[in-house]
Amino acid sequence: MENWITEIMNTYGYIGIFLLIALENIFPPIPSEVILTFGGFMTTTTNLSVVGVIIVSTIGSVAGAIILYGIGLLLNVDRLEKIVDKWGHILRITSKDIHKANAWFQRFGVWAIFFGRLVPLIRSLISIPAGMSRMHMGIFLLFTTIGTLIWNTLLVSVGAVVGASWSDIVGYMDIYSTVVYLILAVLIVLFSVFYIKKRRKVRK
Rank of each mutant, 00 (worst) to 15 (best):
S177L: 10
I150G: 07
M42K: 05
G159H: 14
M173S: 14
Y176D: 08
V158T: 05
E81F: 07
L80E: 06
N76F: 07
V56C: 00
N76V: 06
T148S: 15
Y69S: 03
N152C: 04
R79C: 09
D168P: 07
G72R: 03
L75T: 03
V170I: 07
L149Q: 06
F41D: 02
R134S: 09
I175C: 06
M42S: 08
S157R: 13
W166C: 13
V180W: 00
T45A: 14
G159L: 11
R117A: 08
F115C: 05
L125V: 14
V170L: 07
V53C: 00
I146P: 05
V110A: 10
W104H: 14
T46R: 13
G116S: 08
A103Q: 14
L125T: 12
E81G: 13
L118F: 06
L73D: 11
T144E: 05
S95E: 13
L182R: 00
Y181S: 12
F105I: 13
S165K: 15
G40F: 14
F114K: 01
I175N: 11
V77H: 04
V170S: 05
N102Y: 10
D174A: 11
F114M: 09
Q106T: 03
S133Q: 04
L74R: 06
Q106R: 09
V51D: 07
I90K: 15
Y172M: 15
I67P: 02
I126A: 06
M137S: 11
W166V: 07
L73A: 08
A164V: 15
T94G: 02
V53G: 01
I150R: 12
V180T: 09
A160Q: 15
F114Y: 11
S165T: 13
L154A: 15
I66Q: 06
V156K: 12
D174H: 12
I169N: 08
V53Y: 00
G116T: 06
F115E: 07
G159V: 07
V179I: 15
P129M: 03
T43K: 11
G70E: 01
P120V: 00
I54M: 03
W104I: 12
I71Y: 00
G70L: 04
F115R: 12
F114H: 03
V162A: 03
T178P: 05
L68Y: 09
L182F: 13
I150E: 13
P120W: 02
L118W: 05
V51N: 10
D174S: 12
W166M: 08
I67R: 02
D97K: 01
M135S: 13
V62P: 06
N152A: 00
L142H: 07
I66W: 04
